[in-house]
C-alpha cells in the first residue's frame, strides 16, 4: 500500500527531491508550496523538476547529497546529510551529534 501511494502521489524520496522538501516541512513548518519553492530555488530548478528523477539524479550526485543507487565514493548516511545541511541551511540532529562525538 505505501508503494501505491508513492507511485500515485509521492515525490519518491532520494530518487528525486522528496526528502529535501519533507525536511523543510518538518524543520521550518513550511507548507507544500513554500517548501517546494525553497528547495527548487536552492537547487536552481523548477518545482516540477523536484519530482523528476532524470533531473534530480545528476544534481544529487553533483551536490553529493545522497543518490538512490550505490555509487562508490558518493557521500552516504551522515556525510550526505551534512551536505544537505549546507545546501538547505538547516541543522540536522544526527549531524550535530556526530560533530559533538568527534570534537
Amino acid at each position: 500500500m505505501p508503494i501505491s501511494h508513492i507511485m500515485a502521489s509521492g515525490m519518491t524520496g532520494m530518487r528525486a527531491a522528496g526528502d529535501l522538501v519533507a525536511r523543510m516541512q518538518f524543520s521550518k513548518n513550511m507548507r507544500l508550496g513554500e517548501a517546494k519553492d525553497f528547495v527548487a530555488k536552492k537547487l536552481g530548478v523548477s518545482n516540477a523538476d523536484l519530482s523528476d528523477e532524470f533531473v534530480m539524479r545528476e544534481i544529487r550526485e553533483e551536490l553529493d547529497i545522497g543518490v538512490i543507487t550505490s555509487v562508490p565514493g558518493c557521500a552516504k548516511g551522515i556525510a550526505a546529510k551534512m551536505n544537505i545541511e549546507k545546501l538547505l541551511g538547516i541543522d540536522i540532529n544526527c549531524c550535530d551529534t556526530f560533530r559533538n562525538t568527534i570534537a
Partner: peptide
C-alpha cells in the same frame, strides 16, 4: 487500474 496526480502536484509521503 492505477491513477496518479498530475505531474508537479506530488507530495512528500511520510510513513
Amino acid at each position: 487500474r492505477i491513477v496518479g496526480v498530475e505531474p508537479g502536484l506530488e507530495v512528500p509521503v511520510t510513513h
